[in-house]
Each structure stands twice: as structure tokens, then as C-alpha cells.
Design a protein around this nucleic acid. Structure first.
Lengths: 361, 361
DNA sequence: TAATTGTTCTGTACCGATACAGTAGCGCCC
DNA sequence: GGGCGCTACTGTATCGGTACAGAACAATTA
């Protein structure tokens, strides 16, 4: 017994294959009566509808878009902020019926998802633009949107105002009177450890923008910052060990700026384990405004970004790019930048009085 | 200018289309020399490799598998436990080069992902087995694995020992001397509110198994339980409002069993907001052993399941089912049940002395 | 030397649909 | 009653590959 295809049904009903195809995909092309007959026979034969693969080839539409996630999927999937971003994407995609395929940036054996999986377009989220996965997507000339990455010519991009947010966070500490500030950050590549010139150590766009923002405010106030940079991994552990490094390294800072809320949680945990109080001994600022940051104790001062909106914007930009690729030559590409906002909660306050040397401004 | 295909390259190099195909997909079928020439020309022409869609049709392999997630993707994506499960899947899938496509169980317009997306198989995670999405997958005769669902004949399934875990949790409370116990649970359909016969109200497999387990221990001890059941939504809010319901409803329980850790967090928050101490006034038990449950205060007593192992098991069962579907007729289907384990932490203790009427056993 | 084996490349037949340009029949109108 | 415009359906070409069974030719074996 062969497989049931459009032709099988066509033969049974006594119509052309095309009519059966229309019965499924373009109901307005045939009489309701005939359509019902076709559908009935299909039902009877256990036909599940046009084969998606064949349909994809013939129509040039896969019905799914890819999301390229940084490095291993495992990390990304346990990152609440990244997942909230995905949720924003799927929300926006839902009405269009488009599905989402998770693409690992790391090649897996000799199969490269970015090269070998059928998709109509891709959202590239916080990836190394030089990675082979990204270049495969480009070679395929797939419609793309870059998110949390350096905007590239000809490719739509969505970013948040990392720099402004970071600046506001650092300025907040400066305004509170802090003069001994540390920074805890993370990345996939570059130098790690206690860094004197972190801007030299990193190429990742988001990290770089935040560093720039922090230094905008700190430099203006003449405040040098101790920077601890760690390889990307479990953020809680990163924060914990980074804080330990800071505590073991001479003078303890009175405030710590963190790359993310998740890292900030680890930092706070380490400080508390060392008997220090947050914020009375040390102030801590996060980034992202992870939903649980409001709930932890002390509630975290952080920089809010609207991750859901970012996801939606990415999805709609991609949908647009896909439509556009079909209809005609490219029109103007948009580079969107969403705002960020400092949210002051309970994890920051004035530096303790016993604070030692303070640099004059 | 037409698109660059295998034929284009074949013409340029002066070989057959088949040879070019082999150069990409079966390197052992041609001399290294010729292969290099082919690849060089492909590079020159900006050819990105065989079109995934066409390859999928011809070879019968899409290179991606679907995960059907309960109801809306939005909820699932913000569920740490579900995401850790996905991470387990992707880890196991990585070496095979297979990607993961997120399938919404809810139909979207007239496009039904479960019917219209090209996949080699599917993992059905905690879905209503009667849902149209599941029945589409079945009609397509796709290799499938059921996870956290009632095992079905002919379909591999992975479950955890929900019942045993729940029983252990409830027994723990009984052993501590609690005689006034409440249960907070959730589901997509059925009855909601204060329930007298919750087993009647729910058909969802996991929820049912946990209820059975809780009652195994409570019934044996002759302890009636107050059950609050809420429609699936933000778990923190579910827990919060459920606890409020319990507090407003006559006698306050001395212990609360929760469907998940996330819900337990909401419950604890509500209790604390009401000036009650956890565990001195009320003990709270969760389920899942969400990673952050260890970190919150008080550290949560819960039932541990190995979500990562569940994901891996699901992925490898699916890979097996896919291979099997290709090679020959089905062999024995496996129904796997992973263990659960009670983890006692700081959120449970003896009931307060002032506890009123206690039922004799 | 003839037979056997192996390597390397080719030709044809699909995979299962959709696109698009017809064609046939039919009611309508002046 | 011939031209016109609809609706309903069909035929052919095509989407871009892979599978599989050879063919051509050199190398090995008996």
C-alpha cells in the first residue's frame, strides 16, 4: 500500500489532483458541494492534509522562522529574560500561524542548523555576528532581524538603549555618593578576570554598550571602577564568584553594577554570605528588570527593558522582511531602539559613613 | 538571473547534477579532487548548499522535531521547569544535529502548526490528549513521545512518579503532625474554586496523579483536605490568590500542598503578607524542585524531579521512534517512569501548638 | 588473459505538492 | 443569437533536490 497523497484522493473522487489541492488550500476555487465530497473522501482515507514538506517546496514557504540563540541552547533556555523575549515573538507570530524553530549557533556534527533547516527567515538574538551560523544565514539570503546586536547595513535590527540605561544606573550610584564602584560583567569570549581596560576585552555589542554607559557616568564623575569579567555560564555562580573576587581584592566597593539581574542575585548572595548587608554596606544594581527582581529581598534596583516588546518588534520586523522579500526589492530597513528606564528599589542606598578615601570631583 | 541551484553549479563545473549533490551530501562518492572543484565553484557562485526544503522532500527528513506545548506558548516559555525540560531535549538532540520547533497547541487562524509544519516527529508535553493538535499529529502518523501525559498504547511515553512524590509530600506533613491540610492546584479546564471532589474536576494526567498521591497519604491518616483549584495562569498569582481564598475561608490550614514550586512561592508570599510565618504558622510544600526553590527564604520543601533527565529521555525515545519508523515495523514501545524524591528544607515544620481541633486517627 | 572487483561518475525516476494559464459550460444582455 | 463575463475545474510545468541502478574504466586476481 502506497502512501495517501493528493492523487490518491483525486482518483477516488474522480477529479484532478489540482482540485483536491484547492479543496484544502483554496476553498474559494471550487463548489462547496464538491469540496465536501473531497474532504469526506480524504477523511475516509485517513489523509492528514497536504504534506508540509512538499507544500513548502512548491509554495516557497516553510511556515516557520528560526531563532538563532547565542552559543548553546541550554543556557538560553534557562534564561528567563531570553525566554520572555521568545514569548514576545511567539505572541506576535501567533496570528500569522508561523512557528518558531530554535537554532543552535554551535554547529552540531556536520549538520549546521542555520544552513540545513527549512525556515522562512531568522531572528538572530545576541549572537556573535562573525559566527559561522550567522554567515550561513546570510549566504542563504534569508530575511533576518538582528536583536541585541550591532546593527548591520541592510538588515533590520532591534536594540534597547543599553548605554543610556547603564549610564542612568551608574549616575544613580554617583548621585547617592558612591565613590568606590565595581562592575561585574560577562561574555563568551575575550579576556576574563579583573580587567583594567574592559572595553578592549570585549566585542559583544550589548556588553560593550553597557560598559560604555556605565563609564559615561563614572568617568564624568572621575570615578575609577574595578571590573570583574567572567566567562558566560550560570549567572548566579558568575555573580557569586565575581563578588568573592571583589571581596578578596583589597578595598571593598560600596556599590556594584551588574550586567544582569541574574548576576546581581548571585552577587547579593555572596555579599550576604560574607556578612555584608545590601544595601547598607554595599549597593547593588542589576539590568533587565527580571520579573522576580521585584520579589527578592532586597528588591533589586535595576534597569528595565521591555523584553516582550522587543520580541514583538523583532517578530513583526521579520514578518515585514519576509513579505518584502517576496513582493519586491528591499525598501528602507529599520533600526529600532527601545528605551530603557532606571527602576530604583531597595538594593541601593548611600554608601556607609565609614567609607574610606573618597575622590574629589 | 535565476537562482543558483545544483544544476547551475553542475553546468559550470561540467559534471552531472548528481555529482554536485554528492559533493555536498556524500563526499565519499567522488574523488577529493573533483569535490574541491565543485565546492570552489559553489563558493564562487555564492551557493549556500542544498536547499533544505527540497532536500527534505526528496530525502524524507526535515531535520527538526516538534515540541507541542500546552495551550499558549507564552505561558510555557516563562515556566522555568518546562524550559529546563526543553534544555534537556536540546542537549540530547544536539549530537544528532536535529533542531527543535515550538508548536502551539492552540490553532492559529486556519493554520494549524501540528498539521502544517514539516517535522520528523514530535514530543507532546503535558497536553490535552483530546486536543486537535494531538490528533493532527496522530493522523500524520508522526513518531511521537508523550511526556507528562497518560501513556497511550503504541506511543512511547515518559513520566515521573507524580503519585509517589505527592504521597511522600503529604505523608511528610502527616508525620509532622499536621491535621489541617490544604491543597492548591491548577489546570486548564474543569471546575475551579474551592472543590470538594477535585478528582472529579480534573482530567489532566499530571494533576490527577498528584492529587491521587496527596490523598493516598491524607486519606490513610483520615485527614480531609481543603482544595483550591485555579485556572492555569501566572503561577505566582495563582498561589497568591489561592492562599488568600484559604485565609478567608474559615479555619486556616496548618499546611499547604502546592501543585508546583512556582505556585508555592505565591502562596508563601500571600501568607507572609498576611503576617503569618512560614513554616512556624503554616508549612508549605511545593513540587518540581525548581532551582530557585533552594534559594528563596524559607528554602522550599518540595518534591524533586529530574527535568533534565526527562528531557533527555524524551529526546532519545523520539530519536529511537524516528529511526524505527524508517527501518521497519514498530517494535516494543517503552513507557518510562522516572523517580521523584521528597526534599525537606525549611518551609515545613510541626504545626503550631495553638492548633485547634485535631481529628483522631 | 579473462574474470573479478572497486572507484567514480551519470541518467532517470521520483518526492508531493502548487502556480498559472487555460477550457468548458452557462446565464445574461441588448 | 453572438459576445461577454462568471464560476468551476483541469493540464502541464516546476519547485530543488535525492535514490538507486547502472556505465566506464582502471586495478587486482586467478
Amino acid at each position: 500500500m502506497g502512501r495517501v497523497t493528493l492523487q490518491t484522493i483525486a482518483d477516488h473522487v474522480g477529479v484532478s489532483r489540482m482540485t483536491v489541492s484547492n479543496a484544502f488550500s483554496r476553498p474559494d476555487q471550487l463548489s462547496a458541494n464538491l469540496r465536501d465530497r473531497v474532504l469526506a473522501v480524504a477523511e475516509e482515507l485517513g489523509y492528514a492534509g497536504p504534506d508540509p514538506t512538499a507544500r513548502a517546496l512548491a509554495s516557497g514557504t516553510a511556515g516557520t522562522v528560526g531563532v538563532l540563540l547565542s552559543e548553546t541552547l541550554t543556557y538560553s533556555l534557562t534564561d528567563e529574560v531570553a525566554m520572555a523575549f521568545l514569548a514576545g515573538i511567539t505572541d506576535e507570530l501567533a496570528p500569522t500561524g508561523t512557528s518558531l524553530t530554535l537554532l543552535s549557533a554551535a554547529p552540531q556534527g556536520d549538520l549546521v542548523p542555520a544552513r540545513d533547516v527549512a525556515i522562512d527567515g531568522a531572528i538572530v538574538y545576541s549572537c556573535n555576528p562573525e559566527s559561522s551560523a550567522v554567515s550561513w544565514l546570510m549566504r542563504r539570503r534569508l530575511p533576518m532581524v538582528f536583536v541585541d546586536q550591532a546593527p548591520a547595513p541592510g538588515i533590520a535590527s532591534i536594540n534597547i538603549d543599553d548605554r543610556q540605561g547603564a549610564r542612568a544606573a551608574a549616575q544613580h550610584l554617583v548621585d547617592l555618593g558612591h565613590r568606590q564602584v565595581a562592575i561585574v560583567t560577562t561574555g563568551f569570549a575575550g579576556e576574563f578576570g579583573l580587567l583594567t581596560d574592559p572595553l578592549q576585552a570585549t566585542t559583544a555589542y550589548t556588553e560593550r554598550q553597557r560598559l560604555l554607559g556605565w563609564f559615561d557616568a563614572l568617568d564624568a564623575a572621575g570615578i575609577p571602577a574595578t571590573v570583574v569579567r567572567q566567562r558566560h555560564a550560570n549567572p548566579d555562580e558568575i555573580g557569586y564568584t565575581a563578588a568573592q573576587t571583589l571581596l578578596g581584592h583589597g578595598e571593598c566597593p560600596t556599590a556594584i553594577l551588574c550586567f544582569s539581574d541574574a548576576i546581581a542575585r548571585g552577587v547579593i548572595r555572596a555579599l550576604q554570605d560574607s556578612g555584608l548587608d545590601v544595601p547598607d554596606d554595599v549597593s547593588v544594581v542589576g539590568f533587565d528588570d527580571n520579573p522576580i527582581s521585584r520579589r527578592i529581598s532586597p528588591a533589586l534596583t535595576t534597569v528595565r527593558q521591555d523584553v516582550d516588546a522587543k520580541g514583538r518588534a523583532a517578530a513583526s520586523a521579520l514578518t515585514l522582511a519576509i513579505d518584502r522579500a517576496k513582493t519586491g526589492p528591499a525598501r528602507r530597513i529599520r533600526h529600532l531602539m527601545l528605551p530603557t528606564e532606571l527602576v530604583v528599589r531597595a538594593s541601593t542606598t548611600h554608601p556607609p559613613r565609614t567609607s574610606s578615601s573618597s575622590t574629589a570631583v
